[in-house]
Design a protein around this nucleic acid. Structure first.
Length: 904
RNA sequence: GCCGGUGUGGCGAAAUGGCAGACGCACAGGACUUAAAAUCCUGGGAGGAUAACACCUCGUGUCGGUUCGAGUCCGACCACCGGCACCA
């Protein structure tokens, strides 16, 4: 792979310290009330629990491919911060676990017949070994596995909370279903149950869903990308099915509003805002010209109502069949009637068009978006403001699932309506004038209303207000808010997921009691999905059919169920009686002047922007409403790590052959070099290409650190002996002695300045998560220290404390050599930076003429401005540029720069 | 189409409006070595100028602006990356 020589015995050092950390449980985080052993290093520093700091990684799906270099990017960053926070005195919670339900394990099981439990266990073991070999300071006593019954019983328990709650719009929060009140005409138990069932946060609905035949399951909207499944990229079709849904739409407004209270990247917040898709507008009621029906439309531009020249319903709109006329009205263009083969009556045209529309896959509907299609249904609606009859059409550019599934078309001011009207020769009436004076046909912005009765002359915003008031006054409309977000389709036809704690009796669903948890999946040997969409669990008839005639729900929950709340389980991972204990929840989730509410820092990729990160916020808010958690938001601060590309600048993939395996890097350079390189590549959030040569660079740096601390001859002896008797590694390691240049002496002022400049830079950079520049500061220190004749022990000890979060193994080893103490660096005080030490007596000041540097002068740090000006003007080089010119102005920026502005 | 991000040496990058390119990679030269590797030292944006220095001009995607001074702030544009996309 490369020719770089072995820099230091990382292969002995790293296992040594990893074993010590494990044996000592160095990184255990302590809960309130927990007894901390007196010999634990934490006790030596803290007599009571200090403020908490919760730093979280997105837990991985343990795939068969093993760890990828992308995983440790975020994990290294959080580990550095976790170690730093411990050093500055926090009780740090830094856990890891496994998001282990999911499709790949199940598909592997289908192929090989191997039970997914088995492959999952193997994959977890591999992931854990790989993660541990990087020396991350996780508290493994809190490890969670979403497929463990002791874990998923609580996923099921939260589902029961959702099932047994409703969203009260008055209090704007979830409440127990018992608080629901009933209208006067709801009296019988059956009626009451139906009323409840229609309002639960977890409910059953028959709606068109995303069915993926290849995967044999339905998918949530968030899991479908461009008409294909997010997993596998298979075709997805719309199909009406009876499924479990979660009422996330009830939380649309709060999910949107609360984004303002959290510290997330703007791009991510924007993605969630777009997904929630709030839009303000009005509902308008249109009466049908001949008939008693009214059609409700949603519009964000009620000010354009006078420009509505036709109306469009979605092909699936329930009123279409009622509204159809028996015969075509006289004198309408032939092309309004749809395809030539079936245009005898409006009913024929509608039937043909519906077939045409439903045969299109979602993908085709998107790709063919440019070509508008539709048919007239023979009926007319009356525009409430001007009583004008307008033709009613159906067209697939109107979606059944958004708004009311019907629109008023204003072709002059909506690009889609404009296209449609041009194609079918419908009238285009300008009702808003473009203020820039351009042609107003096709103008979709805000302007001045024209040809609009009482609205004429008003600005768009005022026209909206006025017409909305008019609609409300006349009972033909009102202000409304629409959201793009749909309820969350929550059931899957899979084996490898949490069963629902639900049974069915006489076609009615019932919740199982909490005492029945966990509901374990049955043992199966055939995990295949069924073509009909019947879940595989239905094959286990013994399991499904209960003695009293009830049957179990055979759908399972999606993978998101486990990842929605895992960060809460970490707080109290072994609690058998509750999903999290009250004291633990309060301690870790409550903010203070030192730390944020909820998770202080969450690091992960953007791929979960509208999946896990939205779902988690939703569940958390429900738990908050029901009094189970203390904060309205789970993740206070979030950082997205950027993707790591292959050496060729392309996305890493097996097919490109540019995948870097962390095991290979670790074997050659060690964990510390790997960690350093991942951080040294560039800013955490940035997309950046891998370069193995760069690993050699930081590896050489660690070699220089090593050689700075150890005596050369003992190192040479070590290298010779280890070749002769490789088995005696740890014994030989101890014989390497300290560099005799390191002595218990007072540091020189210059040495102190170097140290304290490094402390300042490293501290500020870690706080700001600028780990690449923190590393470069350590390099600058080492480059400087290598020139020193003697190395003061205190300075070198402080340097190791700064190095520890980034390269913990080598830092611990050298610290042990330096001090003779094997006590871990993890809980030693972070070095304090003393600004007084950075003050110099004389500084160099660049002198500019008209912004260009012409000379550098040395001045006392506290020299008065006049003195600096005088000295700057006295410079020969400067004189060459200002001679014979008029000096207009001299700017002296203290400790920064002098600029002389001259004329000409 | 809409939203967000990013453009700086051969490469990864750094720079509270104040000496552009820290740190590292790659490269070149030197020391050590029989030799190589490793290590240590030195050099380096481009162009010009010089015996050599000194020095000069240009330079942070493009064009313009604000400022004593702009990679950084403002305006317009271009390119690439990511997300959303018939959402009325």
């Amino acid at each position: 792979m490369s020719s770089v020589r072995k820099q230091y015995p990382f292969d002995l050092i790293e296992p040594k310290w990893q074993a010590k950390w494990e044996q000592e449980q160095t990184f255990r985080a302590w809960n309130p009330g927990e007894k901390i052993p007196a010999n634990h290093p934490f006790s030596r520093r803290h007599s009571t629990l200090p403020p908490k700091y919760y730093i979280l990684d997105m837990f991985p799906y343990p795939s068969g491919a093993g760890l990828h270099v992308g995983h440790p990017e975020g994990y290294t960053a959080t580990d550095i911060i976790a170690r730093y926070k411990r050093a500055v005195g926090f009780n740090v919670l830094h856990p890891m676990g496994w998001d282990a339900f999911g499709l790949p394990a199940e598909q592997y099981a289908i192929k090989t017949g191997q039970h997914p439990r088995k492959t999952t266990e193997q994959n977890i073991a591999t992931f854990k070994r790989q993660i541990q070999s990087l020396g991350f300071s996780y508290d493994w006593s809190r490890e969670v596995d979403t497929t463990d019954p002791e874990y998923f019983r609580w996923s099921q328990w939260i589902f029961l909370k959702l099932y047994n709650s409703w969203f009260n719009p008055k209090s704007n929060k979830a409440e127990p279903i018992e608080t629901l009140s009933y209208p006067a005409d709801i009296t019988t138990p059956e009626q009451k149950k139906a009323w409840q069932d229609a309002r639960r946060l977890a409910f059953v609905a028959e709606t068109p869903v995303n069915w993926c035949p290849e995967l044999g399951t339905v998918l949530a909207n968030e899991e479908v990308i461009d008409g294909k499944s997010e997993v596998g990229g298979f075709q997805v079709v719309r199909k009406p099915m009876r499924q479990w849904m979660l009422r996330i739409t009830a939380y649309a407004e709060r999910l949107l509003q609360d984004l303002d209270s959290i510290d997330w990247p703007d791009s991510l917040k924007e993605m969630q805002r777009n997904w929630i898709g709030r839009s303000e507008g009005a509902e308008v009621l249109f009466k049908v010209a001949s008939g008693s029906e009214t059609i409700k439309v949603f519009t964000t531009r009620p000010d354009t109502l006078y420009g509505a020249t036709y109306m469009v319903l979605s092909p699936e709109h329930p009123l279409v069949d009622q509204l159809l006329t028996a015969q075509w009205p006289a004198n309408i263009p032939e092309k309004w009637k749809g395809s030539a083969e079936s245009r005898a009556t409006p009913a024929d045209a509608v039937r043909a068009y519906r077939e045409h529309a439903s045969s299109k896959s979602d993908l085709e509907r998107t790709e063919l978006a440019k070509e508008k299609s539709g048919v007239f249904i023979g009926a007319y609606a009356i525009n409430p403001v001007n009583k004008e009859p307008i033709p009613i059409w159906i067209a697939d550019y109107v979606l059944a699932s958004y708004g009311t599934g019907a629109i008023m078309a204003v072709p002059a001011h909506d690009s889609r309506d404009f296209e449609f009207a041009q194609k079918f020769g419908l009238p285009i009436r300008i009702v808003v004038e473009d203020p820039s004076g351009k042609d107003s046909a096709g103008f979709t912005g805000e302007g001045i209303s024209v040809n609009s009765g009482p609205l004429t002359g008003l600005k768009t915003a005022e026209a909206k207000k006025k017409i909305t008031a008019w609609l409300e006054e006349h009972g033909v409309g009102r202000k409304t808010i629409n959201y793009k977000i749909r309820d969350w389709l929550f059931s899957r036809q899979r084996y490898w997921g949490e069963p629902f704690p639900i049974i069915w009796r006489n076609g009615q669903h019932e919740a199982l009691p909490e005492s029945a948890l966990p509901v374990r999946p049955p043992d199966l040997t055939d995990f295949k999905p069924t073509p009909s969409g019947e879940p595989p669990l239905a094959r286990a008839t013994d399991w499904m059919n209960l003695p009293d005639g009830a049957v179990r729900e055979t759908n399972t929950m999606p993978q998101w169920a486990g990842s929605c709340w895992y960060y809460l389980r970490y707080l109290d991972a072994r609690n058998h009686d509750a999903f999290v204990g009250t004291a633990a929840e309060k301690y870790w989730m409550t903010g203070s002047s030192h730390s944020a509410p909820g998770v202080d820092l969450y690091v992960g990729g953007t791929e979960h922007a509208v999946l896990h990160l939205l779902y988690s916020r939703f569940w958390h808010k429900v738990l908050f409403d029901l009094g189970h958690v203390s904060t309205a938001e789970p993740f206070y601060k979030l950082v997205n790590q950027g993707l790591i590309l292959g050496e060729d600048g392309q996305k890493m993939s097996k097919s490109r052959g540019n995948v870097v395996n962390p095991d290979d890097i670790l074997k050659e350079f060690g964990a510390d070099a790997f960690r350093l390189y991942e951080m040294f590549m560039g800013p955490l959030e940035m997309v950046k290409p891998w370069n193995t040569k760069g690993v050699e660079g930081v590896y050489r740096f660690l070699g220089r650190v090593w050689r700075l601390f150890v005596e050369e001859k003992s190192e040479v002896d070590f290298e010779q002996s280890i070749t002769l008797s490789p088995g005696k590694g740890s014994e030989l390691l101890e014989k390497i002695s300290l560099n005799p240049k390191i002595q218990e002496i007072e540091p020189t002022p210059a040495q102190l300045r170097t140290l304290h400049a490094t402390i300042k830079k490293v501290t500020e950079d870690i706080e700001g998560i600028r780990l690449n520049t923190a590393i470069s500061a350590l390099m600058v220190f080492v480059n400087e220290a290598m020139t020193w004749e003697k190395l003061p022990k205190s300075v070198m000890a402080d340097f190791l404390k700064l190095l520890q979060p980034l390269a913990p193994h080598i830092a611990e080893e050298l610290h042990e050599k330096l001090t003779g103490s094997s006590e871990t660096l993890a809980y030693l005080d972070w070095p304090k930076f003393d600004p007084a030490l950075l003050v110099e007596n004389e500084i160099e000041l660049p002198v500019q003429v008209n912004g260009k540097v012409r000379d550098v002068i040395r001045v006392p740090v506290d020299a008065p401005t006049q003195e600096i000006e005088k000295q700057a003007l006295a410079s020969e080089k400067v004189q060459a540029f200002i001679a014979g010119k008029e000096v207009k102005k001299i700017i002296v920026v203290p400790k920064r720069v002098v600029n002389i502005a001259v004329a000409g």
